[in-house]
Design a protein around this nucleic acid. Sequence first.
DNA 1: TATGTGTTTTGATGTGGATCAAAGGCAATC
DNA 2: GATTGCCTTTGATCCACATCAAAACACATA
Lengths: 251, 251
Amino acid sequence: MSRGELARQQSTHLVLAELKAACANCNLRELCLPAGLSNAELDQLDNLVNVRRKIKRGDALYRAGEIFDAIYAVRSGFFKSRVTYEDGRDQVTGFSMGGEILGMDGIGQGTHNCDAIALEDSDVCTIPYTRLEELSREVSGLQRHFHKMMSREIVRESGVMMLLGVMRAEERIAAFLLNLSQRLNARGYSPLEFHLRMTREEMGSYLGLKLETVSRAFSKFHNDGLIEVEQKFVRIIDIEGLKQVYAHHVN
Amino acid sequence: MSRGELARQQSTHLVLAELKAACANCNLRELCLPAGLSNAELDQLDNLVNVRRKIKRGDALYRAGEIFDAIYAVRSGFFKSRVTYEDGRDQVTGFSMGGEILGMDGIGQGTHNCDAIALEDSDVCTIPYTRLEELSREVSGLQRHFHKMMSREIVRESGVMMLLGVMRAEERIAAFLLNLSQRLNARGYSPLEFHLRMTREEMGSYLGLKLETVSRAFSKFHNDGLIEVEQKFVRIIDIEGLKQVYAHHVN
DNA sequence: TATGTGTTTTGATGTGGATCAAAGGCAATC
DNA sequence: GATTGCCTTTGATCCACATCAAAACACATA
């Protein structure tokens, strides 16, 4: 597959699916909120998830401080989440792709804690929170799965803490590429070649590194025969080698 | 108050409260899972939270990999949560004190993701998860508050990511002390003098720093007249000065 | 009181990644 | 196809924190 086709495949909205409103016919249902629900339960969820929203590249799905009233399921596209600190410093705290849930940070305090910015034209399902609460009192499978998604977000973040707290630069970047690869794979895309949706700077912000360091690591991986990189296009040549980058550290 | 008394006050179990089983009479109820529930609702919760467990200093409340079947509310004492990576490297991902909930990381995959280790003799309430699910289908206040606690854990962790990703050593340590201070204050303890329950190394692990760096920062803060430190005892002398440590960074 | 063990402090030195700087590449718009 | 505005790469230098080392200290147990 050429790079151009790959880019198109990953960002094309699924026009057919847009004709049907919601989860029952969504090809992401096994990854998303409805995972594990019965058909009858799915129908109930469909009544809840009826508002779709398109977000243009660069625009915010929500911003820190805004009133929280819904969570969002990414239907297509790609987002970054970004926390801005009082003094203006900010950090990217995550990247989200199809089937992943955004906005759960807002439940605790009633306002969003971060900005969710689309890194490409994107499409989300809006899930009003109070109605989700109501429905998950009736549909225990939904309740359980929603809890799981929140819990997994907690676990994901402690993984990032590990990354930031104990790994060195190249390990972080290898781990990041492998994580992306695995998530793309779960969505039916090639795990070995893909387009990065974020800049080196955004990647660095997420990983606690400067963009120059990210760039140098990419060059090093390329020289070591682990990957091919051309701007935002990445091809993983030696996935085992990439895994060894952080398996074989010196303690 | 002398340092000895302070230490005793913070670690003494509340013998009287132990006679009553659960939440309705717990002095932590405003901070803990039952926050905001009506008296009737509290009574229902009392039926759920009936297993108490004592954990000795150094022992684990649970360990990574164990089957998850309950979350825990810290009643007295102090815990660290620790994630161990495949290759043996580990990181402290949090510290928990009275009224805080432990174990929510296990919901997603059905097994615990980290070890929870008592840093002093501690006392927890066991909350069986399936019963919590059932009850929160009936008691919407409980459902909502449980969601809030999970969400706050997500927000807390993104705060730590910020700390690890963008702050420098002294900022991290100042932020850490102020966070401890604020949490102790919310529990009725002095926000200005307290005993650290963790070693310099555990603090460093949490903050992504080496123990020597933590020690040096403490010495520096002492020389700058911000705090007094004597081993595990800390007195904050100039809380505003401490806040300025990370407010006045150079960008 | 002596002894061992783990914790903390402090100093000297090393280094990974930040910072500074400059050049080159890509894509959109005119 | 020239201009403009990012984004990326690469090199040179710097510095914050790690690492290495040693001594002091705290606390438990014999």
